[in-house]
Design a protein around this nucleic acid. Structure first.
Lengths: 242, 242
DNA sequence: CGAGTATTTGATGCAGTTCAACGCTCGTGG
DNA sequence: CCACGAGCGTTGAACTGCATCAAATACTCG
């Protein structure tokens, strides 16, 4: 049975902007259903069109793009609260694939309802643009990371960002979060080889900065890691929940 | 004297989605002024807030981010028709710098008017989200480029994208476009050293693929270059003009 | 228990960085 | 009118971070 937006488990986290009662009620009507998928499921295929947009309620996934030469780039990891498929709706095709890493529960919105959202509830339309801007901001930071940071810095950057983001949606504890991706995924997200990623992670583990084993990321020294990554270990950008 | 939206020189190009008469008239009221800046002017400073959003009418610029270690990443080049500053308005600060490379003419919109746009003209609000999605799409492609393409492929990718985009807004001729950036800018956009960028460009020139001299990019073999870049040399993504 | 998948580790090589130097073109001031 | 310096492009030489290759060791699940 689908969750009602009124009792959405995500809304309470401070990373998400507040919504009025009427907005929540409106979203509940806008929501067309829920999707529950198993690990490994491909939710959006590269190049295909979609009639739907999703908000992640539970579970982790990733967006990726495959080049002609077969190499794959993970564009970003997808966490609870993220909105996926907006591009597919606004432009006419999905240029990225989207797959579930763990089991996922997704809120489903219909493409044809989307324009009505802008018309009937301008505040919510504004919020959609807002999340799009947040995503764009994050991608810009990723570009800067791939372009200018060394392998060690990239890993530090990714682990700090992931750790803070997951903690912001209530996953894990103060110093550990669940991280069920494979090293290959992280390597492909950062434009590094699997081997080098593994060796660099081993160094982090030895120097007691972070330890990533058995699907759990144990954060030992967030400050130091953030310093290596050249970022502030601040809470993630506040954003609306769609 | 400012140009009226009714006679905007950009709207005629097929890269931009059509607008109704009433939309154009509305935008003319929404537009708060025009900004004319000299080459090298910093329009948005990194980390500062802005009360304004800009649409480029004429001229070229670039968005960049500087890391703590002093290295600079060019996030993207900014061309006529691009909307800049949306992030600064929706989130509370600009994380990127924006500077003019040539003289530029910019349409100025006020931050506080922005929400009204969503309320008064939902179609236009939708279009703002659309351009945001287009930008996000492009940044995703950039991430894939920095992560998975070799130096040669990156250069080929960038030159093809730039060439097609500039041609789509009527700049240059069938086989040449003005390109007043410095090699350093391109190197910083692609995460390459200036030296290697220079040498790779020299190879392109020798193999008669492209020649970039005296601020002009002469495209000799678009097909071949696109093949190296592993992309289709198709016209850029259709997008709305704000 | 065996097959397939993920992690780990060592050895080798190269794409691209870094260092260094030189030439060209402008603009500026004496 | 020429000397000078600043900025950009060009080229050569040496170095290195990371990729690639190869193979062994854990894990997971039917």
């Amino acid at each position: 049975m689908p969750i009602q937006c009124q009792s959405c488990p995500l809304r309470k986290f401070p990373i998400f902007a507040e919504m009025t009662e009427s907005e929540v009620a409106f979203m509940d009507g806008f929501k067309s259903g829920e999707l529950l998928v198993e690990p490994g499921t491909q939710i959006l295929a590269e190049g295909a069109g979609t009639p739907q947009v999703y908000t992640v309620l539970e579970g982790l996934g990733l967006r990726y793009k495959t080049l002609e030469n077969g190499r794959r780039q993970v564009i970003n990891f997808v966490f609870p609260g993220d909105l996926v498929g907006l591009q597919a709706v606004l432009m006419d095709n999905t240029s990225y694939g989207f797959e579930a890493t763990t089991q996922m529960r997704l809120c489903v919105f219909n493409r044809r309802d989307f324009f009505n959202l802008f018309r009937q509830h301008p505040e919510r339309g504004y919020d959609v643009t807002w999340v799009s801007a947040v995503d764009e901001h994050f991608l810009g930071e990723t570009v800067a990371t791939l372009g200018q940071r060394s392998a060690t810095e990239r890993l530090a950057w990714a682990l700090v960002r992931i750790f803070l983001r997951l903690r912001a949606v209530g996953l894990g504890t103060d110093d550990a979060v669940p991280l069920p991706y494979r090293q290959r995924d992280l390597a492909e997200a950062l434009g590094l080889s699997l081997v080098h990623t593994n060796k660099t992670l081993a160094k982090f583990s030895q120097s007691r900065l972070v330890r990533w084993t058995t699907d759990t990321l144990h954060m030992k020294n967030l400050e130091k890691l953030a310093e290596i990554a050249m970022i502030d270990p601040e809470a993630p950008q506040r954003r609306p929940l769609i």
